[in-house]
Design a protein around this nucleic acid. Structure first.
Length: 732
DNA sequence: GTTACGTTTAAAT
DNA sequence: TAAACGTAAC
């Protein structure tokens, strides 16, 4: 039941959280929440008495999700019912029975849909069902514990002693047990709502120095909780008002002042209510839990801690004298209601692992040496990040560069992790020189390197290279390869792999690459200053004018009907292209981008992606040449023949900036290579690849204004939209 | 503005 | 089952 309206009430103490933020931690899970949701999917089968494991599989999905984020789950189950909740449970049983009878009746009448609705209401989660899940978890080395009474108290204790740093539940009652970090509404994408106890004073509107957790708990009890109904007319708001007003610590005295403090003269606070209030408070403080580290039952908080009179603890459970029985109850071997032995599992015995079951490597709370090695809070991992070199040729100072380098060094330790995050399930084609390249990655060659001033992602070239080889239009090997694989990679597939490796090195190891979601740009100072004095329409006109006159651009059109995707990639793609991207004149960027959207992201949640794309412009903007390394990698990996791109006639448009080019040129795929070759004669400093709309373009500009074209870019402007990683740079 | 209460909706596949 | 929502009463 929980506290009505508590989650909205604690809004100021809550924040969105993703499981990736709590890697390496341990969470206690209110497993009945998952079981109840899982049961919903197979309620009809269960109501008919058919065997199903759908609810088990549903729970295991969550377990696996947690494990995938290197989070150790401890599944906590409810134990015996407290006397205080006996009435509630009885009501529920009656309600379920009625629902079952009604469902049967509706089925007889042929009203299937209505019957289904009632069938969902008549299914209960039994301990047998919980035991099935416990058995599955045991085989996966995932810890489970059955609380002597309420799972809430057990989880709060695990949180209190720091065995679990977070708690996953849907029950707002948990906050009253003193849990520190609670995750509500966790979904299968890994997103949830974190409520932090240390911020609860914000929700109450109380100064931190005047706040004590007891005040919050008393407020909640006053507003009505599982163990005590509220006084008529008292909700969270009024309870909060009263608690903040009273200075009296002794609630037996304070509660009598409610009518006068809240100006509710007709309200009666009798002795019964006060007695029950004291009992409710004691229940939240002193309920019995099981300590798996010391293998004994104990109270959540000792009575001495609060100098609580034991007579108020009548709803806080009783101590099981038989310690063996208490242990087996906690292990899940006993039915908590009948105390009947159902299983004989012990943590000491090595149990065989079923085939195809992957065991977690986390240390079990049931291991005797767990406490000595796991009592410290896991170190929060440094955020891994890539940095991008902000191409600001005017204002960049040496100090800034040093700072950026320092940040890069700090980020390096997590590069390996980052590579893992952005790796693909598709098998990587390993080149024979792979090991060499890995070594090189660790110890970059000390040779003098010529770095492009315009393209931070450009492949590094030695000075000798610059002298010997004719300059290429596209310094980015991957992009060039995409445009013209034959010309770009005369050495064949192996050379391409090397090029990509080198490209990666240049991004991840050498260059300072700040990752932005889709594109990054250095603003052309001249254009920017010019635009500052113009209104939006004039800005757009300026953009169009620049593009139209093509004073510095060359437009290449690669006629292709289909993009080279192997079946594996195609299967991942769910036609997520938006309307704007389904034009027949689809650009290479949008094609790549639409594919990119289909590639499973290590980040997962949409919300997070939004966060990581603070400057993501409108669709028309993102349609610009945004080519992601991941896509290129994927394409390269999945294309056995480097010339495969040519065989597929994709429709791609790439803008190239070139002062010497005075008019818009279009070239078919057959002429692309020659066009690129002509570009080779251009001065390096004037090469532009992958131009996109300037970031100063008015957000949400109607497509008609820009005519669906890419934005104008002046000759000094470098706007590369080639590697739009989704990882948000998070630096501390 | 707050509370109480009835109704609707989402939960899963 | 509980949260969310709408509405009426105070």
């Amino acid at each position: 039941m929980g506290i009505t309206g508590l989650i909205p009430f604690v809004g100021k103490a809550s924040s969105q959280l993703h499981l990736k933020d709590i890697r390496g931690s341990t969470v206690a899970v209110d497993t009945y929440c998952w079981l109840h949701k899982g049961v919903f999917g197979c309620a009809e089968k269960l109501a008919r008495g058919e065997d199903t494991d759908i609810y088990i599989q549903y729970c295991l999905k969550y377990v696996n999700m947690l494990l995938s984020y290197d989070i150790k789950p401890i599944l906590v189950f409810d134990g015996q019912h407290l006397p205080a909740k006996a009435l509630t449970e009885k009501r529920r049983r009656v309600s379920r029975k009625q629902s079952k009878e009604r469902a049967a009746e509706l089925l007889r009448l042929g009203r299937i849909e209505e019957a289904r609705s009632h069938m969902r209401r008549c299914v209960d989660v039994t301990h047998d069902m919980a035991l099935r899940l416990i058995r599955e978890c045991r085989s996966r080395n995932v810890d489970c514990i059955v609380a002597p009474y309420e799972a809430d108290a057990q989880m709060a204790w695990l949180n209190k002693v720091d065995v679990a740093q977070y708690i996953i539940t849907e029950d707002s009652d948990l906050t009253l047990f003193g849990a520190k970090n609670i995750i509500f509404k966790l979904d299968l994408n890994g997103s949830g709502l974190l409520v932090e106890a240390e911020k609860l004073h914000l929700a109450m509107g109380c100064k931190e120095e005047k706040y004590h957790f007891d005040k919050f708990r008393r407020m909640c009890i006053l507003s009505g909780c599982d163990y005590l109904d509220s006084l008529p007319g008292i909700g969270l708001a009024k309870a909060c008002k009263f608690i903040l007003k009273t200075e009296q610590e002794d609630m037996r005295i304070a509660l009598k002042k409610i009518p006068s403090y809240l100006n509710m003269r007709n309200l009666e606070v009798n002795d019964d209510y006060i007695e029950n209030f004291m009992k409710a408070e004691a229940t939240f403080k002193h309920m019995f839990i099981y300590n798996p580290l010391e293998r004994r039952m104990q109270r959540l908080c000792a009575l001495e801690d609060y100098e609580t009179d034991e007579r108020y603890c009548s709803n806080a459970g009783t101590l099981l004298e038989d310690s063996e029985q208490a242990l087996h109850l906690a292990l899940g071997n006993l039915n908590p209601f009948s105390m009947k032995r159902l299983d004989s599992w012990t943590p000491e015995k090595a149990w065989p692992t079923p085939k195809n079951v992957k065991r977690s490597k986390h240390k079990s709370i049931w291991q005797t040496n767990f406490q000595s090695e796991n009592t410290t809070t896991p170190k929060k991992e440094n955020s891994c990040a890539l940095f991008f070199k902000k191409v600001d040729f005017v204002s960049k100072t040496v100090n800034e560069e040093i700072e950026a380098n320092q940040r890069l060094e700090q980020a390096k330790q997590t590069e390996a992790q980052l590579f893992t995050m952005y790796s693909f399930k598709a098998k990587r084609r390993r080149s024979p020189s792979r090991s060499d390249s890995v070594d090189q990655e660790r110890t970059p060659p000390p040779s003098p390197v010529h770095k492009s001033r315009h393209n931070p992602f450009a492949k590094e070239r030695t000075i000798e290279d610059c002298n010997q080889r004719s300059p290429v239009v596209c310094e980015n090997a991957s992009l060039l390869r995409l445009l013209s694989p034959k010309k770009a990679s005369p050495l064949g597939g192996e050379a391409d792999v090397k090029k990509v490796d080198s490209l990666k090195r240049s991004i991840f190891a050498k260059e300072q690459v700040q990752v932005r979601s889709r594109f990054f740009a250095s603003q052309d100072e001249q254009t920017r200053h010019q635009k500052e004095h113009l209104n939006d329409t004039e800005k757009d006109n300026l953009d169009e004018q620049k593009l139209g006159s093509c004073s510095g651009h060359k437009k290449l059109r690669l006629e292709r009907k289909d993009f080279p995707l192997d079946n594996q990639i195609r299967q991942r793609c769910n036609s997520q292209k938006s309307d704007g991207e389904t034009d027949t004149d689809t650009t290479a960027s949008s094609l790549l981008e639409s594919q990119e959207q289909c590639v499973p992201s290590p980040l997962g949640s949409q919300e997070e992606q939004n966060q990581s794309q603070p400057q993501t412009p409108t669709k028309s903007n993102t349609k610009s040449t945004t080519i992601r390394l991941k896509s290129l990698d994927l394409l390269l990996e999945n294309s056995q023949d480097p010339t495969e791109f040519d065989r597929n006639n994709n429709d791609a448009v790439i803008l190239l900036s070139d002062d010497s080019c005075s008019s818009e040129q279009r070239a078919s795929s057959t002429s692309t290579s020659s066009t690129l070759q002509r570009q080779n004669s251009l001065p390096t400093s004037k090469r532009r690849v992958g131009l996109s709309k300037p970031s100063t373009a008015k957000k949400g500009t109607p497509k008609s204004k820009t005519n669906g074209k890419l934005g104008a870019v002046s000759q000094n402007q470098t706007k590369l939209s080639m590697f739009g990683f989704q990882k948000k740079p998070m630096l501390k």
